[in-house]
Design a protein around this nucleic acid. Sequence first.
DNA 1: CCTTTATGTTGACATGTGTCGAACCAGTGA
DNA 2: TCACTGGTTCGACACATGTCAACATAAAGG
Lengths: 123, 123
Amino acid sequence: MSRTEVPPKPKPMTESGPEGSYCPPLGERPLTAGEAERTARMFKALGDPVRLRLFSAIASHEDGEACVCDISDVGVSQPTVSHHLKKLKDAGLLTSQRRGTWVYYRVEPSVLAAMGRLLAPAG
Amino acid sequence: MSRTEVPPKPKPMTESGPEGSYCPPLGERPLTAGEAERTARMFKALGDPVRLRLFSAIASHEDGEACVCDISDVGVSQPTVSHHLKKLKDAGLLTSQRRGTWVYYRVEPSVLAAMGRLLAPAG
DNA sequence: CCTTTATGTTGACATGTGTCGAACCAGTGA
DNA sequence: TCACTGGTTCGACACATGTCAACATAAAGG
């Protein structure tokens, strides 16, 4: 399958905020147990080389989204790719959408921004 | 032991760069296997709630450093704390130094900055 | 319907990880 | 030298995780 012509192509991606759980920069004050629990989930999701490559591939792909078939060459089997994508999705880092035959993944920008703030120079 | 008076108190922490392994923002281009491997180690180190709390406690502590006894109340045994501190150290996120009876940990600023760049708004 | 292609899910397995208690090492101070 | 305290290392264990092959599901096209 060549996958050159995209089907309907909808979804301009406007609203997106299932977040809500704020955490201060890591250097601002000691995190509470609850904050650490939530935050660790995100870091953990990116703590695997395969997931990091998948995430990076999607984030750097055209239009900020990518079909699974576009990013499946990371050295592991297809079920494993699917498994990792699910984990990234469960961590709130990705969203998925089926369009015709293919499934497209895109990064959740708000979460990425939140993680960036965590690592800010923290004065 | 009260630990109110600090012993000699040396080390102004000037040079610090055992880094050297650069990685582009996650959204700039797909990471290579090697880049992902190195980068994932750092995220993985912060992917545990206990380690995240320890790291945050040190980063937000006075002078950017903390004695183990200052941060040991995170709900796990003291050997476990030591174990996690070692992991953070192995990941390059912390450095340790013994001063008299106590061991002090401090965050490696260059690594924190590198992780921040990874999550930057990315193209 | 039946095939084919694209993804996701399940089951099984090896390996990794977090945790603790016990033993051990490093300074301090009598 | 000996005891005491802060911290690390060791050994063991339960549990989580990454991986794959096999199976299941979804859409498209005969």
